[in-house]
Design a protein around this nucleic acid. Structure first.
Length: 603
DNA sequence: TTCCCTTTGAAGACC
DNA sequence: GGTCTTCAAAGGGAA
Protein backbone atom coordinates (compact mmCIF):
# COMPACT_ATOMS: atom_id res chain seq x y z
CA UNK A 1 0.00 0.00 0.00
CA UNK A 2 1.26 3.39 -0.74
CA UNK A 3 2.54 5.15 2.15
CA UNK A 4 0.29 7.82 3.20
CA UNK A 5 1.30 10.89 4.86
CA UNK A 6 1.46 9.21 8.06
CA UNK A 7 0.76 12.47 9.68
CA UNK A 8 3.96 13.97 8.53
CA UNK A 9 3.27 14.58 4.95
CA UNK A 10 2.20 18.13 5.27
CA UNK A 11 4.69 18.98 7.84
CA UNK A 12 7.47 19.38 5.44
CA UNK A 13 5.84 21.47 2.93
CA UNK A 14 4.41 24.84 2.62
CA UNK A 15 2.35 26.27 -0.09
CA UNK A 16 5.23 28.13 -1.50
CA UNK A 17 7.23 25.05 -1.98
CA UNK A 18 7.93 23.49 -5.23
CA UNK A 19 5.81 20.63 -6.07
CA UNK A 20 5.87 18.11 -8.70
CA UNK A 21 3.86 18.71 -11.72
CA UNK A 22 2.98 15.24 -11.93
CA UNK A 23 -0.70 15.60 -12.09
CA UNK A 24 -2.53 18.51 -13.11
CA UNK A 25 -5.27 20.31 -11.41
CA UNK A 26 -5.69 18.11 -8.51
CA UNK A 27 -3.84 19.92 -5.92
CA UNK A 28 -6.54 22.11 -4.66
CA UNK A 29 -8.84 19.29 -4.09
CA UNK A 30 -6.07 17.55 -2.40
CA UNK A 31 -5.30 20.36 -0.14
CA UNK A 32 -8.79 20.46 1.12
CA UNK A 33 -9.48 16.83 1.04
CA UNK A 34 -6.10 15.49 1.61
CA UNK A 35 -6.61 14.06 4.96
CA UNK A 36 -9.98 12.60 4.36
CA UNK A 37 -9.08 11.43 0.95
CA UNK A 38 -6.09 9.63 2.19
CA UNK A 39 -8.17 8.00 4.73
CA UNK A 40 -10.61 7.05 2.06
CA UNK A 41 -7.90 5.75 -0.09
CA UNK A 42 -6.54 3.71 2.64
CA UNK A 43 -9.92 2.30 3.34
CA UNK A 44 -10.58 1.66 -0.27
CA UNK A 45 -7.39 -0.13 -0.88
CA UNK A 46 -7.66 -2.06 2.26
CA UNK A 47 -11.14 -3.04 1.40
CA UNK A 48 -10.04 -3.91 -2.05
CA UNK A 49 -7.48 -6.28 -0.79
CA UNK A 50 -9.73 -7.59 1.87
CA UNK A 51 -12.46 -7.96 -0.60
CA UNK A 52 -10.20 -9.94 -2.77
CA UNK A 53 -9.25 -12.08 0.10
CA UNK A 54 -12.78 -12.46 1.22
CA UNK A 55 -14.01 -13.23 -2.19
CA UNK A 56 -11.67 -16.02 -2.63
CA UNK A 57 -12.17 -17.28 0.81
CA UNK A 58 -15.89 -16.99 0.81
CA UNK A 59 -16.56 -17.93 -2.72
CA UNK A 60 -14.27 -20.80 -2.52
CA UNK A 61 -15.11 -21.59 0.96
CA UNK A 62 -15.41 -25.21 0.25
CA UNK A 63 -12.16 -25.23 -1.61
CA UNK A 64 -10.61 -23.14 1.02
CA UNK A 65 -11.36 -25.78 3.49
CA UNK A 66 -9.15 -28.04 1.51
CA UNK A 67 -6.58 -25.47 0.82
CA UNK A 68 -3.20 -26.97 1.32
CA UNK A 69 -1.10 -25.39 3.90
CA UNK A 70 2.00 -23.59 3.11
CA UNK A 71 3.96 -26.35 4.63
CA UNK A 72 2.11 -29.38 3.60
CA UNK A 73 2.19 -32.23 5.96
CA UNK A 74 0.48 -35.51 5.75
CA UNK A 75 -2.80 -34.02 6.60
CA UNK A 76 -2.53 -31.33 4.07
CA UNK A 77 -1.62 -33.85 1.49
CA UNK A 78 -4.76 -35.67 2.16
CA UNK A 79 -6.68 -32.49 1.90
CA UNK A 80 -4.98 -31.68 -1.29
CA UNK A 81 -5.81 -35.00 -2.73
CA UNK A 82 -9.37 -34.57 -1.77
CA UNK A 83 -9.31 -31.23 -3.32
CA UNK A 84 -8.00 -32.51 -6.55
CA UNK A 85 -10.41 -35.30 -6.59
CA UNK A 86 -13.14 -32.80 -6.27
CA UNK A 87 -11.67 -30.59 -8.94
CA UNK A 88 -11.24 -33.44 -11.31
CA UNK A 89 -14.66 -34.73 -10.61
CA UNK A 90 -16.05 -31.37 -11.55
CA UNK A 91 -14.11 -31.34 -14.69
CA UNK A 92 -15.34 -34.68 -15.69
CA UNK A 93 -18.86 -33.88 -14.77
CA UNK A 94 -18.93 -30.79 -16.80
CA UNK A 95 -16.89 -31.94 -19.68
CA UNK A 96 -14.97 -28.77 -19.38
CA UNK A 97 -13.40 -27.39 -16.42
CA UNK A 98 -15.70 -25.02 -14.80
CA UNK A 99 -14.28 -22.20 -12.95
CA UNK A 100 -15.11 -21.90 -9.35
CA UNK A 101 -17.24 -19.15 -8.02
CA UNK A 102 -14.14 -17.23 -7.70
CA UNK A 103 -12.27 -18.25 -10.73
CA UNK A 104 -8.99 -17.12 -9.53
CA UNK A 105 -8.53 -19.83 -7.09
CA UNK A 106 -5.08 -21.09 -7.69
CA UNK A 107 -5.66 -24.66 -6.97
CA UNK A 108 -8.14 -24.97 -9.71
CA UNK A 109 -5.77 -23.80 -12.32
CA UNK A 110 -5.59 -27.03 -14.15
CA UNK A 111 -6.67 -26.05 -17.58
CA UNK A 112 -4.75 -28.76 -19.27
CA UNK A 113 -5.84 -31.42 -16.98
CA UNK A 114 -9.20 -31.96 -18.40
CA UNK A 115 -8.55 -35.54 -17.97
CA UNK A 116 -5.32 -35.93 -16.21
CA UNK A 117 -5.81 -39.52 -15.61
CA UNK A 118 -4.99 -42.20 -18.01
CA UNK A 119 -7.32 -44.95 -18.79
CA UNK A 120 -5.72 -47.12 -16.22
CA UNK A 121 -6.39 -44.59 -13.57
CA UNK A 122 -2.90 -43.31 -13.47
CA UNK A 123 -2.16 -39.72 -13.70
CA UNK A 124 -0.95 -38.63 -17.05
CA UNK A 125 2.60 -37.41 -17.28
CA UNK A 126 1.56 -33.93 -18.01
CA UNK A 127 -0.78 -33.96 -15.13
CA UNK A 128 1.86 -35.27 -12.89
CA UNK A 129 4.20 -32.68 -14.12
CA UNK A 130 1.75 -30.01 -13.39
CA UNK A 131 0.81 -31.28 -10.05
CA UNK A 132 4.31 -31.87 -8.99
CA UNK A 133 5.14 -28.47 -10.10
CA UNK A 134 2.17 -27.02 -8.43
CA UNK A 135 3.01 -28.75 -5.27
CA UNK A 136 6.63 -29.59 -5.39
CA UNK A 137 6.38 -31.32 -2.12
CA UNK A 138 3.36 -33.19 -3.02
CA UNK A 139 3.02 -36.46 -4.72
CA UNK A 140 -0.15 -36.06 -6.54
CA UNK A 141 -2.85 -38.64 -6.37
CA UNK A 142 -2.45 -41.26 -8.89
CA UNK A 143 1.20 -41.00 -8.98
CA UNK A 144 1.34 -44.27 -7.29
CA UNK A 145 -0.43 -45.75 -10.19
CA UNK A 146 2.07 -44.50 -12.63
CA UNK A 147 5.20 -45.09 -10.79
CA UNK A 148 7.77 -42.51 -11.21
CA UNK A 149 11.12 -43.66 -10.17
CA UNK A 150 11.99 -40.15 -9.31
CA UNK A 151 9.23 -39.74 -6.91
CA UNK A 152 8.23 -43.14 -5.85
CA UNK A 153 6.93 -42.22 -2.50
CA UNK A 154 3.40 -41.08 -2.10
CA UNK A 155 3.24 -37.60 -0.94
CA UNK A 156 1.35 -38.32 2.17
CA UNK A 157 4.05 -40.69 3.17
CA UNK A 158 6.90 -38.45 2.38
CA UNK A 159 8.70 -37.19 5.35
CA UNK A 160 9.53 -33.59 5.69
CA UNK A 161 13.16 -34.26 5.11
CA UNK A 162 12.29 -36.05 1.96
CA UNK A 163 10.21 -33.18 0.94
CA UNK A 164 13.10 -30.93 1.51
CA UNK A 165 15.20 -33.09 -0.69
CA UNK A 166 12.64 -33.05 -3.40
CA UNK A 167 12.36 -29.39 -3.08
CA UNK A 168 16.06 -29.05 -3.48
CA UNK A 169 15.94 -31.17 -6.56
CA UNK A 170 13.18 -29.10 -7.87
CA UNK A 171 15.23 -26.03 -7.50
CA UNK A 172 18.05 -27.59 -9.37
CA UNK A 173 15.77 -28.58 -12.13
CA UNK A 174 14.37 -25.15 -12.33
CA UNK A 175 17.76 -23.73 -12.84
CA UNK A 176 18.47 -26.07 -15.66
CA UNK A 177 15.24 -25.37 -17.36
CA UNK A 178 15.75 -21.72 -17.04
CA UNK A 179 19.09 -22.07 -18.62
CA UNK A 180 17.39 -23.58 -21.57
CA UNK A 181 15.12 -20.68 -21.97
CA UNK A 182 11.88 -22.38 -21.57
CA UNK A 183 9.81 -21.39 -24.48
CA UNK A 184 6.66 -19.70 -23.73
CA UNK A 185 4.25 -18.06 -26.03
CA UNK A 186 2.50 -14.82 -25.79
CA UNK A 187 0.44 -13.33 -28.41
CA UNK A 188 1.53 -9.85 -28.97
CA UNK A 189 -1.95 -8.56 -28.61
CA UNK A 190 -5.20 -9.67 -27.19
CA UNK A 191 -3.75 -9.41 -23.84
CA UNK A 192 -6.25 -10.09 -21.27
CA UNK A 193 -6.12 -8.09 -18.12
CA UNK A 194 -5.40 -11.21 -16.27
CA UNK A 195 -2.55 -12.26 -18.39
CA UNK A 196 0.09 -11.18 -15.99
CA UNK A 197 -0.11 -14.59 -14.60
CA UNK A 198 0.16 -16.02 -18.02
CA UNK A 199 2.39 -13.69 -19.76
CA UNK A 200 3.97 -15.85 -22.26
CA UNK A 201 6.47 -13.50 -23.53
CA UNK A 202 7.97 -13.91 -26.89
CA UNK A 203 10.96 -12.41 -25.43
CA UNK A 204 11.43 -15.46 -23.43
CA UNK A 205 10.26 -17.79 -26.02
CA UNK A 206 12.84 -19.61 -27.87
CA UNK A 207 11.11 -21.55 -30.56
CA UNK A 208 14.00 -23.86 -30.80
CA UNK A 209 13.65 -27.41 -29.86
CA UNK A 210 14.35 -27.92 -26.25
CA UNK A 211 16.98 -30.32 -25.20
CA UNK A 212 16.03 -33.88 -25.40
CA UNK A 213 15.98 -34.27 -21.71
CA UNK A 214 13.60 -31.42 -21.53
CA UNK A 215 11.56 -32.37 -24.46
CA UNK A 216 7.91 -31.70 -24.23
CA UNK A 217 7.25 -35.04 -25.69
CA UNK A 218 4.66 -36.93 -23.93
CA UNK A 219 5.34 -40.33 -22.66
CA UNK A 220 3.30 -42.92 -24.26
CA UNK A 221 1.17 -44.26 -21.50
CA UNK A 222 1.60 -47.74 -22.76
CA UNK A 223 5.17 -47.88 -23.80
CA UNK A 224 6.55 -45.09 -21.79
CA UNK A 225 8.39 -43.93 -24.85
CA UNK A 226 8.43 -40.25 -25.41
CA UNK A 227 6.42 -39.09 -28.33
CA UNK A 228 5.46 -35.81 -29.74
CA UNK A 229 2.11 -34.74 -28.50
CA UNK A 230 -0.56 -34.70 -31.06
CA UNK A 231 -2.45 -31.48 -31.32
CA UNK A 232 -5.58 -33.21 -30.36
CA UNK A 233 -4.00 -34.07 -27.10
CA UNK A 234 -3.46 -30.48 -26.38
CA UNK A 235 -7.02 -29.57 -26.87
CA UNK A 236 -9.17 -28.02 -25.88
CA UNK A 237 -6.78 -25.60 -24.47
CA UNK A 238 -4.34 -25.71 -27.27
CA UNK A 239 -6.33 -26.20 -30.39
CA UNK A 240 -4.02 -25.83 -33.29
CA UNK A 241 -5.84 -24.27 -36.09
CA UNK A 242 -4.02 -24.60 -39.38
CA UNK A 243 -4.68 -21.08 -40.34
CA UNK A 244 -3.36 -19.66 -37.22
CA UNK A 245 -0.46 -21.98 -37.16
CA UNK A 246 -1.77 -23.09 -33.96
CA UNK A 247 -3.29 -21.01 -31.35
CA UNK A 248 -4.22 -21.91 -27.94
CA UNK A 249 -7.09 -21.00 -25.85
CA UNK A 250 -6.47 -18.34 -23.40
CA UNK A 251 -4.70 -19.99 -20.59
CA UNK A 252 -6.99 -18.16 -18.31
CA UNK A 253 -10.07 -19.38 -19.98
CA UNK A 254 -10.87 -20.95 -16.73
CA UNK A 255 -10.92 -17.47 -15.42
CA UNK A 256 -13.02 -16.28 -18.23
CA UNK A 257 -15.63 -18.86 -18.88
CA UNK A 258 -17.23 -16.71 -21.45
CA UNK A 259 -14.15 -16.44 -23.47
CA UNK A 260 -12.97 -19.17 -25.64
CA UNK A 261 -10.95 -17.35 -28.13
CA UNK A 262 -7.48 -18.44 -28.78
CA UNK A 263 -5.11 -16.01 -27.42
CA UNK A 264 -1.73 -17.40 -27.99
CA UNK A 265 -0.09 -18.38 -31.13
CA UNK A 266 1.98 -21.42 -31.30
CA UNK A 267 5.08 -22.04 -33.29
CA UNK A 268 4.63 -23.90 -36.50
CA UNK A 269 5.76 -27.08 -34.93
CA UNK A 270 2.96 -26.89 -32.52
CA UNK A 271 3.09 -25.99 -28.96
CA UNK A 272 6.30 -27.31 -27.68
CA UNK A 273 6.80 -26.50 -24.17
CA UNK A 274 9.16 -28.54 -22.18
CA UNK A 275 6.55 -28.57 -19.55
CA UNK A 276 3.20 -28.30 -21.16
CA UNK A 277 1.44 -28.28 -17.92
CA UNK A 278 3.52 -25.42 -16.89
CA UNK A 279 2.73 -23.47 -19.92
CA UNK A 280 -0.88 -24.19 -19.57
CA UNK A 281 -1.19 -23.19 -16.05
CA UNK A 282 -1.97 -19.56 -15.75
CA UNK A 283 -0.36 -19.00 -12.50
CA UNK A 284 2.63 -21.11 -12.98
CA UNK A 285 3.12 -20.14 -16.51
CA UNK A 286 3.28 -16.62 -15.40
CA UNK A 287 5.94 -17.54 -13.05
CA UNK A 288 7.68 -19.46 -15.69
CA UNK A 289 7.29 -17.19 -18.58
CA UNK A 290 6.69 -13.72 -17.49
CA UNK A 291 9.42 -13.87 -15.02
CA UNK A 292 11.47 -16.26 -16.90
CA UNK A 293 14.08 -14.11 -18.23
CA UNK A 294 16.90 -15.89 -19.93
CA UNK A 295 19.39 -13.41 -18.79
CA UNK A 296 18.58 -14.21 -15.29
CA UNK A 297 18.92 -17.84 -15.81
CA UNK A 298 21.77 -19.92 -14.77
CA UNK A 299 22.61 -23.46 -15.39
CA UNK A 300 22.46 -25.54 -12.34
CA UNK A 301 25.69 -26.23 -10.70
CA UNK A 302 24.90 -29.79 -10.23
CA UNK A 303 22.71 -32.55 -11.37
CA UNK A 304 19.12 -32.02 -11.97
CA UNK A 305 15.95 -33.60 -11.20
CA UNK A 306 14.26 -34.37 -14.41
CA UNK A 307 10.87 -33.78 -13.08
CA UNK A 308 11.85 -30.44 -11.80
CA UNK A 309 9.79 -27.57 -12.94
CA UNK A 310 11.33 -24.27 -13.66
CA UNK A 311 10.16 -21.46 -11.60
CA UNK A 312 10.89 -18.01 -12.88
CA UNK A 313 11.33 -16.78 -9.42
CA UNK A 314 14.43 -18.80 -9.09
CA UNK A 315 17.42 -16.96 -10.22
CA UNK A 316 20.97 -17.44 -9.42
CA UNK A 317 22.45 -14.37 -7.88
CA UNK A 318 25.58 -14.97 -9.80
CA UNK A 319 23.72 -14.87 -12.99
CA UNK A 320 22.19 -11.64 -12.25
CA UNK A 321 25.61 -10.27 -12.20
CA UNK A 322 26.52 -12.16 -15.27
CA UNK A 323 23.70 -12.06 -17.69
CA UNK A 324 25.53 -13.96 -20.31
CA UNK A 325 26.78 -16.31 -17.75
CA UNK A 326 27.30 -19.60 -19.30
CA UNK A 327 28.84 -20.97 -16.28
CA UNK A 328 29.46 -24.59 -16.67
CA UNK A 329 29.05 -26.87 -13.75
CA UNK A 330 32.69 -27.63 -13.94
CA UNK A 331 33.48 -24.03 -13.47
CA UNK A 332 31.33 -24.04 -10.45
CA UNK A 333 33.09 -27.06 -9.19
CA UNK A 334 36.40 -25.40 -9.65
CA UNK A 335 35.36 -22.37 -7.77
CA UNK A 336 38.13 -21.49 -5.41
CA UNK A 337 35.90 -19.96 -2.87
CA UNK A 338 33.61 -22.48 -1.30
CA UNK A 339 31.58 -19.90 0.45
CA UNK A 340 30.95 -18.04 -2.71
CA UNK A 341 30.26 -21.24 -4.43
CA UNK A 342 27.64 -22.05 -1.93
CA UNK A 343 26.18 -18.69 -2.39
CA UNK A 344 26.14 -19.10 -6.10
CA UNK A 345 24.50 -22.40 -5.78
CA UNK A 346 21.80 -20.95 -3.72
CA UNK A 347 19.06 -20.07 -6.12
CA UNK A 348 17.75 -16.62 -6.04
CA UNK A 349 14.08 -16.82 -5.48
CA UNK A 350 12.45 -13.69 -6.55
CA UNK A 351 9.69 -12.01 -4.80
CA UNK A 352 6.26 -12.69 -6.03
CA UNK A 353 4.90 -9.89 -8.07
CA UNK A 354 2.47 -7.59 -6.51
CA UNK A 355 -0.68 -6.39 -8.14
CA UNK A 356 0.87 -3.42 -9.72
CA UNK A 357 3.76 -5.38 -11.06
CA UNK A 358 1.42 -7.79 -12.64
CA UNK A 359 -0.50 -4.97 -14.13
CA UNK A 360 2.66 -3.36 -15.30
CA UNK A 361 3.91 -6.42 -17.00
CA UNK A 362 0.76 -6.72 -18.89
CA UNK A 363 0.21 -3.15 -19.79
CA UNK A 364 3.72 -2.10 -20.53
CA UNK A 365 3.57 -3.29 -24.06
CA UNK A 366 0.39 -1.43 -24.65
CA UNK A 367 1.73 1.75 -23.27
CA UNK A 368 4.89 1.42 -25.22
CA UNK A 369 2.86 0.85 -28.31
CA UNK A 370 0.76 3.87 -27.64
CA UNK A 371 3.59 6.08 -26.77
CA UNK A 372 6.85 6.55 -28.43
CA UNK A 373 8.39 6.77 -25.07
CA UNK A 374 11.12 4.32 -24.56
CA UNK A 375 12.29 4.92 -21.10
CA UNK A 376 10.87 2.60 -18.63
CA UNK A 377 10.82 5.25 -16.02
CA UNK A 378 8.44 7.26 -18.12
CA UNK A 379 6.43 4.24 -19.00
CA UNK A 380 6.16 3.36 -15.41
CA UNK A 381 4.88 6.74 -14.55
CA UNK A 382 2.17 6.28 -17.05
CA UNK A 383 1.45 2.86 -15.79
CA UNK A 384 1.27 4.13 -12.29
CA UNK A 385 -1.36 6.59 -13.28
CA UNK A 386 -3.27 4.15 -15.28
CA UNK A 387 -3.18 1.86 -12.36
CA UNK A 388 -4.93 4.42 -10.29
CA UNK A 389 -7.37 5.07 -13.01
CA UNK A 390 -8.39 1.49 -13.00
CA UNK A 391 -11.67 0.64 -11.56
CA UNK A 392 -11.89 -1.04 -8.29
CA UNK A 393 -12.96 -4.18 -9.97
CA UNK A 394 -10.11 -4.07 -12.36
CA UNK A 395 -7.65 -3.53 -9.64
CA UNK A 396 -9.23 -6.26 -7.65
CA UNK A 397 -8.38 -8.68 -10.37
CA UNK A 398 -4.77 -7.85 -10.08
CA UNK A 399 -4.85 -7.92 -6.36
CA UNK A 400 -6.32 -11.33 -6.60
CA UNK A 401 -3.73 -12.45 -9.04
CA UNK A 402 -1.04 -11.10 -6.85
CA UNK A 403 -2.51 -12.87 -3.93
CA UNK A 404 -2.44 -16.08 -5.85
CA UNK A 405 1.07 -15.47 -6.89
CA UNK A 406 2.08 -15.03 -3.32
CA UNK A 407 0.14 -18.07 -2.37
CA UNK A 408 1.74 -20.13 -5.02
CA UNK A 409 5.08 -18.73 -4.20
CA UNK A 410 4.68 -19.63 -0.60
CA UNK A 411 3.76 -23.11 -1.61
CA UNK A 412 6.70 -23.51 -3.87
CA UNK A 413 9.10 -21.96 -1.46
CA UNK A 414 7.76 -22.50 1.99
CA UNK A 415 10.84 -21.31 3.69
CA UNK A 416 11.47 -18.36 1.55
CA UNK A 417 11.40 -14.93 2.98
CA UNK A 418 11.62 -11.61 1.32
CA UNK A 419 14.49 -11.00 3.57
CA UNK A 420 16.42 -13.64 1.73
CA UNK A 421 16.75 -11.31 -1.17
CA UNK A 422 17.92 -8.42 0.84
CA UNK A 423 21.32 -7.40 -0.22
CA UNK A 424 21.24 -9.58 -3.27
CA UNK A 425 21.15 -6.59 -5.43
CA UNK A 426 23.95 -4.23 -5.72
CA UNK A 427 23.46 -1.84 -2.97
CA UNK A 428 21.89 1.29 -4.07
CA UNK A 429 23.47 4.51 -3.28
CA UNK A 430 20.57 5.63 -1.29
CA UNK A 431 21.93 6.27 2.07
CA UNK A 432 19.60 9.08 2.68
CA UNK A 433 18.46 9.30 6.19
CA UNK A 434 15.88 11.58 7.63
CA UNK A 435 18.52 13.24 9.69
CA UNK A 436 20.76 13.89 6.75
CA UNK A 437 22.42 17.17 6.49
CA UNK A 438 20.37 19.84 4.83
CA UNK A 439 22.90 20.32 2.12
CA UNK A 440 22.74 16.75 1.20
CA UNK A 441 19.06 16.91 1.26
CA UNK A 442 19.07 19.75 -1.11
CA UNK A 443 21.31 18.03 -3.52
CA UNK A 444 19.36 14.91 -3.44
CA UNK A 445 16.24 16.80 -4.00
CA UNK A 446 17.39 18.13 -7.24
CA UNK A 447 18.28 14.77 -8.48
CA UNK A 448 15.22 13.17 -7.48
CA UNK A 449 12.71 15.38 -8.81
CA UNK A 450 13.30 14.76 -12.37
CA UNK A 451 10.15 13.58 -13.79
CA UNK A 452 9.85 11.85 -17.03
CA UNK A 453 6.32 12.73 -17.52
CA UNK A 454 4.81 16.04 -16.76
CA UNK A 455 1.42 14.68 -16.24
CA UNK A 456 -1.02 12.18 -17.41
CA UNK A 457 -1.60 14.55 -20.19
CA UNK A 458 1.27 13.10 -21.95
CA UNK A 459 0.29 9.61 -22.37
CA UNK A 460 -1.94 8.71 -19.73
CA UNK A 461 -5.11 8.66 -18.03
CA UNK A 462 -6.09 10.76 -15.20
CA UNK A 463 -4.63 9.78 -12.28
CA UNK A 464 -3.47 11.22 -9.35
CA UNK A 465 -0.89 13.38 -8.22
CA UNK A 466 1.04 11.55 -5.78
CA UNK A 467 0.26 8.39 -7.38
CA UNK A 468 -2.63 7.40 -5.37
CA UNK A 469 -6.28 7.66 -5.76
CA UNK A 470 -6.26 10.62 -3.61
CA UNK A 471 -6.19 12.90 -6.49
CA UNK A 472 -8.68 10.96 -8.27
CA UNK A 473 -12.09 10.91 -6.93
CA UNK A 474 -11.94 9.87 -3.41
CA UNK A 475 -13.23 6.45 -4.06
CA UNK A 476 -12.17 3.98 -6.64
CA UNK A 477 -15.61 3.92 -8.05
CA UNK A 478 -15.44 7.59 -8.41
CA UNK A 479 -12.12 7.20 -10.00
CA UNK A 480 -13.76 4.94 -12.42
CA UNK A 481 -16.18 7.55 -13.26
CA UNK A 482 -13.46 9.50 -14.84
CA UNK A 483 -11.73 7.06 -17.01
CA UNK A 484 -9.07 8.55 -18.96
CA UNK A 485 -8.93 11.95 -18.01
CA UNK A 486 -7.15 14.99 -18.29
CA UNK A 487 -5.52 14.55 -21.41
CA UNK A 488 -5.41 18.12 -22.06
CA UNK A 489 -4.87 19.65 -25.35
CA UNK A 490 -1.43 20.30 -26.55
CA UNK A 491 -1.70 23.87 -25.66
CA UNK A 492 -2.73 22.87 -22.26
CA UNK A 493 0.22 20.65 -22.03
CA UNK A 494 2.39 23.60 -22.36
CA UNK A 495 0.58 25.01 -19.44
CA UNK A 496 2.10 24.72 -16.15
CA UNK A 497 2.03 22.21 -13.97
CA UNK A 498 0.29 19.79 -12.06
CA UNK A 499 0.76 20.03 -8.43
CA UNK A 500 2.01 16.87 -7.20
CA UNK A 501 2.64 15.63 -3.82
CA UNK A 502 4.15 12.38 -3.11
CA UNK A 503 3.90 10.38 -0.02
CA UNK A 504 6.60 11.34 2.29
CA UNK A 505 8.02 7.94 2.24
CA UNK A 506 8.32 8.00 -1.48
CA UNK A 507 9.89 11.33 -1.44
CA UNK A 508 12.40 10.18 0.97
CA UNK A 509 12.97 7.26 -1.17
CA UNK A 510 13.97 9.57 -3.90
CA UNK A 511 15.92 11.99 -1.87
CA UNK A 512 18.62 9.59 -1.23
CA UNK A 513 19.71 9.59 -4.78
CA UNK A 514 22.54 11.92 -5.21
CA UNK A 515 22.75 14.38 -7.86
CA UNK A 516 23.05 12.58 -11.03
CA UNK A 517 20.46 14.84 -12.40
CA UNK A 518 21.99 18.08 -11.47
CA UNK A 519 22.52 18.85 -15.07
CA UNK A 520 19.10 18.01 -16.12
CA UNK A 521 17.85 19.82 -13.15
CA UNK A 522 19.23 23.04 -14.27
CA UNK A 523 18.05 22.57 -17.75
CA UNK A 524 14.70 21.55 -16.59
CA UNK A 525 14.46 24.34 -14.19
CA UNK A 526 14.75 26.76 -16.97
CA UNK A 527 12.03 24.63 -18.22
CA UNK A 528 10.21 26.14 -21.00
CA UNK A 529 11.19 24.50 -24.14
CA UNK A 530 14.40 22.87 -23.54
CA UNK A 531 15.17 19.72 -25.29
CA UNK A 532 15.01 16.56 -23.46
CA UNK A 533 18.30 15.13 -22.64
CA UNK A 534 16.92 11.75 -22.40
CA UNK A 535 14.42 11.33 -25.07
CA UNK A 536 14.94 12.40 -28.58
CA UNK A 537 16.51 15.67 -27.94
CA UNK A 538 16.13 16.59 -31.54
CA UNK A 539 12.46 16.28 -31.37
CA UNK A 540 10.22 19.10 -30.49
CA UNK A 541 9.23 18.90 -26.95
CA UNK A 542 6.51 20.09 -24.80
CA UNK A 543 7.71 22.52 -22.33
CA UNK A 544 7.21 21.41 -18.88
CA UNK A 545 7.07 24.15 -16.40
CA UNK A 546 8.06 23.74 -12.90
CA UNK A 547 5.80 24.60 -10.13
CA UNK A 548 5.98 24.79 -6.46
CA UNK A 549 5.16 22.18 -4.06
CA UNK A 550 2.14 22.83 -2.08
CA UNK A 551 2.09 20.43 0.65
CA UNK A 552 4.81 18.25 1.42
CA UNK A 553 8.17 18.79 0.20
CA UNK A 554 10.62 21.51 -0.11
CA UNK A 555 12.03 19.64 -2.97
CA UNK A 556 11.71 21.22 -6.32
CA UNK A 557 10.04 18.80 -8.57
CA UNK A 558 11.34 19.02 -12.03
CA UNK A 559 10.07 17.45 -15.05
CA UNK A 560 11.61 16.53 -18.26
CA UNK A 561 10.36 17.81 -21.50
CA UNK A 562 8.65 15.13 -23.34
CA UNK A 563 9.07 14.78 -27.05
CA UNK A 564 5.99 15.94 -28.66
CA UNK A 565 6.06 13.01 -30.94
CA UNK A 566 5.80 10.81 -27.97
CA UNK A 567 2.22 11.73 -27.68
CA UNK A 568 -0.40 9.79 -29.33
CA UNK A 569 -3.68 11.46 -30.12
CA UNK A 570 -5.54 8.68 -28.51
CA UNK A 571 -3.81 9.42 -25.31
CA UNK A 572 -5.13 12.86 -25.18
CA UNK A 573 -8.52 12.07 -24.06
CA UNK A 574 -10.69 14.85 -22.83
CA UNK A 575 -10.57 15.51 -19.18
CA UNK A 576 -13.29 14.29 -17.01
CA UNK A 577 -15.49 16.75 -15.25
CA UNK A 578 -13.50 16.10 -12.19
CA UNK A 579 -10.28 16.92 -13.85
CA UNK A 580 -11.74 19.78 -15.74
CA UNK A 581 -12.63 21.36 -12.51
CA UNK A 582 -9.26 20.55 -11.18
CA UNK A 583 -7.60 22.00 -14.19
CA UNK A 584 -9.62 25.08 -13.89
CA UNK A 585 -8.58 25.72 -10.38
CA UNK A 586 -5.17 24.62 -11.25
CA UNK A 587 -4.77 27.15 -13.96
CA UNK A 588 -6.10 29.80 -11.72
CA UNK A 589 -3.53 28.89 -9.23
CA UNK A 590 -0.72 29.12 -11.66
CA UNK A 591 -1.73 32.38 -13.03
CA UNK A 592 -0.75 33.73 -9.73
CA UNK A 593 2.36 31.72 -9.41
CA UNK A 594 5.63 32.23 -11.11
CA UNK A 595 6.88 29.41 -13.15
CA UNK A 596 10.37 29.78 -12.03
CA UNK A 597 12.02 27.15 -10.06
CA UNK A 598 11.52 27.96 -6.48
CA UNK A 599 13.13 26.08 -3.78
CA UNK A 600 12.42 26.58 -0.24
CA UNK A 601 15.61 27.31 1.51
CA UNK A 602 16.66 24.44 3.52
CA UNK A 603 17.21 24.98 7.11
C1' DT B 1 29.15 -3.28 -17.43
C1' DT B 2 26.58 -1.63 -13.87
C1' DC B 3 23.49 1.24 -11.84
C1' DC B 4 19.75 4.65 -12.08
C1' DC B 5 15.22 5.89 -12.96
C1' DT B 6 10.17 5.25 -12.08
C1' DT B 7 5.97 3.12 -10.53
C1' DT B 8 3.03 0.34 -6.56
C1' DG B 9 2.72 -3.17 -3.32
C1' DA B 10 4.43 -6.62 -0.07
C1' DA B 11 7.25 -7.77 3.52
C1' DG B 12 10.76 -7.24 6.77
C1' DA B 13 13.33 -4.23 9.91
C1' DC B 14 13.36 -0.84 13.13
C1' DC B 15 11.77 2.32 16.72
C1' DG C 1 1.63 0.21 15.40
C1' DG C 2 3.85 3.41 12.50
C1' DT C 3 7.64 4.34 9.59
C1' DC C 4 11.29 3.15 6.68
C1' DT C 5 13.74 0.15 3.49
C1' DT C 6 14.23 -3.29 0.08
C1' DC C 7 12.79 -5.73 -3.79
C1' DA C 8 9.94 -7.21 -7.46
C1' DA C 9 9.72 -5.72 -13.67
C1' DA C 10 11.29 -3.16 -17.44
C1' DG C 11 14.59 -1.07 -20.54
C1' DG C 12 16.66 3.26 -22.05
C1' DG C 13 20.06 6.25 -20.35
C1' DA C 14 24.07 7.59 -17.87
C1' DA C 15 28.38 6.86 -15.67
Amino acid sequence: MPQLNGGGGDDLGANDEMISFKDEGEQEEKISENVSAERDLDDVKSSLVNESENNSSSSDSEQAERRPQTRPDSESYEKTRDYFSEALRRQQDGGFFKSPHYPGYPFLMIPDLTNPYLSNGSLSPSARTYLQMKWPLLDVPGSAGLKDSRSPTPGHLVSKSQNRTKFKLLHDSLCLLQSNKVPVVQHAHHVHPLTPLITYSNEHFSPGTPPSHLSPEILDPKTGIPRTPHPSELSPYYPLSPGAVGSIAHPLSWLMPQQGQHMYSIPPGGFRHPYPALAMNPSMSSLVSSRFSPHMVTPPPHSLHQTGIPHPAIVSPAIKQEPSGDISPSMHAKSPVPAKKEEDKKPHIKKPLNAFMLYMKEMRAKVVAECTLKESAAINQILGRRWHSLSREEQAKYYELARKERQLHSQLYPGWSARDNYGKRKKRKRENKPDSKPEDFSIRSKKQCVQYLPSEKMCDSPASSHGSMLDSPATPSAALASPAAPAATHSEQAQPLSLTTKPEGRMQHHFSIPGKASGSTSSSSSSSSSSSSTSSSSQPTISIPVGTSGSQSNTPILTRPIPFTSLHPSMLSPPSPFHQAALHSHHALFQSQPLSLVTKPTE
